[in-house]
Design a protein around this nucleic acid. Structure first.
Length: 853
RNA sequence: GGGCGGUUAGCUCAGUUGGCUAGAGCGCGUCUUUGACGUAGACGAGGUCAGAGGUUCAAAUCCUCUACCGCCCACCA
């Protein structure tokens, strides 16, 4: 007897995981006759700790992996670790700051080496945490996003794009965080609705006319005025027609700038005049291109005003400059009012600094052709989405896709393999000798681009890079990741996958929603409401966390974390443990020959039917990614069916071979969801061999369906009796009598056992006395209760007669409807008829009963 | 401005070709030391499925509108 009274996960989990790992069960098989099933894990940050979202990710992916492994498929769950370029860099820069250093104290190569070292010290934590979550992934295949094979593929892709003309170097406005000193892709900028001020500033005409002395522009960013190179009016705007082409004086400077006509100016907005600052506003940049305006950069990459802003302002921060400029304008009498407005402002998603649109030369990818192909593929339904509507959302995004800035000004990442001619800044060449800061090609000196790739440029290629050792696993079976990464990651993997491999990168996409805190708030370090999955594992067990996380959660929906669901799941594990404990006891006490299980009585047929059905349902549900429903179903099977009815009845019969067999099946069915407790039990039971992780999904039992239906009746009878015992005043149990009922006759002992009734004798019909039970198909069962108590039962009987009457009326009305008879499926109509007859018979019995009282 | 969702029991949520009496967990009430489990067992209460209209033999489910809540995208000076 090795089963303790309660299941204590901590005591077993590490050993069980080690056992799996050592056995080689995580390695992929390559049996040509079996299906191939693969999941590429979204690589967690190598440098970080796992958060609760990873708990969900691993739960979902590992359930699928283990399920398919049990089904005998070639299964490969590929783990990864992400260098997480910017994320990690932010952490490291903070560390530098704490040491009183900055990035400018070191060369790029020095910094790269330092971060490598830093990450290396941290790495391993994350992997241990994945183990404690039970991820059955193939550790030998772990890919780090800076592994040479990744870098090679990324370079090959970059070169292919370069050759195909999809990559270009352009000086454009990029989203720049002046604190982190790097550019971002558009998608990485967080937009927030903010209160701002719209100032109206007068720009005096150089040649004032009688009716017009100045143009009043509206702006939320007066500090950019120093970079204005025009003011624009709408070409159709009658107010300004005559002055187009004339000049205005740019306040606070001695420059004059032209008045141009451009559709961008909205006649109905403010005065209809807009200042044009091509170097600091995306719209104005476009206008500037159309009109060949100069681009004057007045804000530097450090967030301070440049010399172009003039001696009085150079060196000020943008905020200081705004204040001073407004004051100076006021002094000069050029302010024409202000109003408060709400507008959307871009922020750095890490430090919340306002993102500056700044002119910078960067590498861009023209995504149009890739997006076009992706849209075609999606519209042809070649990739299935869960939830399905996310496909539409992605298509909508791809239709409006813009060029992707892939340059990052941070040292931690894959260096961009490009060099520029020292003599000619337009002469760029592709070369992978990124370890050298300068190279010589054809006698010319070329200097290295010091930028690195956007992390997503490499992660976007993850599926085919990670599966290259076993190409038969590509495309992967499903990409499971957070719904928030739909554009950033999933969309790019599809585009790049199609581009590079000419194939989809995965067949299905499953997107999970965010795990919110218990109050439904987004978790964040600053709010202090972060839930640590590893702490939950140590408190409740890994299985409980997994089951608790998937409970009541559906694809794509953000949902609060619920401790009570984790506790309920822990209780299920304990229940299963005790089920096993009881069965092991029975096995120990009743030594039998090892024989095939035979189904003898009603309950045995019934439970085997329930297991068959659950097995079928779970397969159906998992094939459709309905994790929560599958979990619920197994909870119900194990607790409400197996333990409460089957095991209770087996205390009488003790069909040892069947107890063993059914327990094995149940353990197998639950294994994908709760791998630790099921394997622990498997390893503890005296008769099981091998490991559950590599067992096979159970085969269906052959059952007698009449017996199954009969046992359902028995359940109804027992429940009805228990209900009476509870509801009737007086003693809490009474003898049960019956006549002419084979089912009850066959199961007298069982009914007695389950109801705790003193006895269940068969009697002559004439001698029957007592309360008659109202059970469909079983009208001859009675409770022998004293007359006075019987009388008290009258009221409840009348109530039920009334209710039954209503049900009968509804059914009669339905069956009297010719349209129903004609149009509803015949099986349904037949069912209604049967139901009506049963109820009518029952009603008659109950009425007779009432007369007797 | 464009797009996508949500509103079901006290709480958190399931409910995907429309079809028996709308489910679960937690919570709540009553009872129970029955050969594993009190992290338990038994029984029970609790819902006009946001509102209005429509389609249908039949609507929580499909359509329209309304109200409230949310998310994403967008270059709103």
């Amino acid at each position: 007897m090795k089963f303790s009274k309660a299941y204590e996960p901590n005591q077993y989990e590490p050993d069980i995981y080690a056992l799996w790992e050592k056995s080689g069960a995580f390695h992929p098989t390559t049996d040509k006759n079996a299906k191939f099933y693969s999941i590429v894990m979204p690589p967690p940050n190598a440098n970080g700790n796992l958060h609760i979202g990873h708990g969900l990710t691993i739960a979902l992916e590992d359930i699928l992996t283990r399920y398919h492994r049990l089904k005998g498929e070639n299964t490969w769950y590929i783990p990864g670790a992400d260098h997480a370029g910017f994320e990690t860099w932010v952490v490291y820069e903070r560390y530098l700051e704490s040491k009183g250093k900055t990035r400018f104290d070191y060369s790029r190569d020095e910094l790269y080496d330092q971060v490598w070292e830093f990450v290396h010290q941290q790495r391993g934590n994350m992997e241990l945490q994945l183990r404690s979550l039970g991820a059955s992934c193939d550790w030998d295949s772990l890919t780090f996003t800076l592994d040479p094979k990744v870098v090679e593929r990324v370079y090959a892709t970059f070169q292919k794009m370069w050759n195909d003309g999809l990559i270009y170097r352009g000086k454009k406005l990029v989203n720049y965080c002046t604190k982190h000193q790097t550019a971002f892709a558009d998608i990485e900028v967080t937009h927030k609705e903010e209160q701002g001020t719209l100032w109206r500033i007068a720009y005096p005409l150089v040649e004032p006319t009688a009716e017009l002395k100045e143009l009043v522009v509206s702006t939320t960013r007066p500090e950019t005025l120093f970079g204005d190179t025009a003011v624009a009016v709408n070409p159709a705007d009658e107010r300004y027609k005559t002055i187009i082409g004339k000049n205005v004086k740019l306040p606070l400077t001695d420059r004059e700038i032209p008045i141009i006509a451009d559709e961008h100016a909205d006649m109905s907005y403010g005065t209809g005049v807009v200042k044009i600052t091509p170097a600091h506003d995306p719209n104005d940049f476009e206008v500037g291109q159309r009109h060949e305006l100069a681009q004057i950069t007045v804000i530097g990459f450090d967030g301070r005003m440049t010399a172009e802003a003039g001696d009085d302002y150079a060196g000020l921060t943008t905020a200081e400059c705004r204040k001073k400029a407004l004051a100076d304008l006021e002094k000069q009498g050029l302010m024409r009012g202000e109003e408060s407005i709400t507008h959307s402002v871009g922020h750095c998603y890490k430090c919340d600094t306002v993102i500056e649109p700044l002119l910078k030369e960067q590498w861009f990818v023209n995504l149009q052709p890739l997006a076009k192909r992706a849209i075609k593929t999606l519209e042809a339904n070649e990739i299935r989405f869960h939830p399905a509507n996310k496909k539409k959302v992605l298509i909508n995004y791809l239709k409006n896709i813009r060029d992707w800035n892939i340059s990052r000004q941070i040292p931690w990442g894959i260096p961009i393999p490009a060099f520029v001619n020292a003599e000619d800044s337009t002469d760029w060449i592709f070369d992978t000798r990124v370890d050298e800061t300068e190279i010589t090609v054809n006698g010319k000196k070329y200097l290295r681009d010091n930028d690195t790739f956007d992390t997503w440029f490499s992660s976007g290629q993850w599926p085919y890079i990670t599966t290259d050792a076993h190409p038969e696993f590509y495309p992967s079976s499903v990409m499971e990741t957070g719904a928030d990464l739909l554009f950033q990651w999933v969309g790019r993997m599809i585009m790049l996958g199609l581009y590079i491999t000419d194939d989809i990168p995965f067949k299905d996409v499953y997107l999970h929603g965010m795990v919110l805190d218990e109050k439904g708030q987004k978790m964040s370090k600053s709010k202090g409401n972060v839930i640590n999955p590893i702490e939950l594992v140590s408190e409740y067990g890994s299985d409980a966390l997994r089951l608790g996380l998937i409970a009541s959660r559906s694809a794509g929906v953000n949902q609060a974390f619920s401790t009570s669901k984790v506790i309920a799941s822990r209780n299920l594990c304990n229940k299963l443990w005790n089920i096993s404990r009881l069965i092991q006891q029975l096995v120990d006490d009743n030594p039998t020959e090892e024989t095939k299980p035979e189904l003898k009585n009603y309950g045995e047929n019934w439970i085997c039917h329930q297991i068959n059905q659950a097995s079928r349902e779970v397969q159906k549900l998992l094939d459709r990614y309905r994790f929560a429903e599958a979990g619920d179903l197994l909870y119900d099977l194990i607790w409400n069916k197996y333990a409460d009815w089957f095991l209770e009845s087996q205390k009488l019969w003790k069909n040892i071979p069947l107890l063993k067999s059914t327990l094995e099946q149940i353990l197998t069915l639950l294994h994908p969801f709760a791998p630790f407790v099921t394997e622990t039990i498997w390893q503890t039971l005296s008769w099981t061999t091998g490991m559950l992780i590599t067992a096979r999904w159970p085969r269906a039992y052959k059952v007698d369906s009449q017996r199954v239906a009969d046992f359902e009746d028995l359940i109804a009878i027992v429940t009805n009796i228990r209900s009476h015992f509870q509801a009737l005043p007086g003693a809490n149990s009474y003898p049960i009598l019956f006549h002419d009922d084979d089912l009850v006759s066959d199961n007298q002992l069982l009914i007695q056992h389950l109801t705790k009734a003193p006895c269940v004798p068969q009697v002559e019909q004439s001698k029957v006395d007592g309360l008659r039970l109202a059970i469909p198909n079983h009208h001859n069962i009675y409770l022998q209760i004293p007359a006075d108590i019987h009388a008290k039962y009258k009221a409840s009987l009348e109530e039920r007669i009334l209710k039954l009457g209503q049900e009968i009326t509804t059914l009669e009305a339905r069956l009297a409807n010719p349209n129903y008879l004609e149009k509803a499926p015949t099986a349904l109509v037949e069912e209604s008829r049967l139901s009506l007859h049963a109820k009518q018979k029952l009603l008659a019995d109950m009425k007779a009963e009432l007369e007797l009282i």
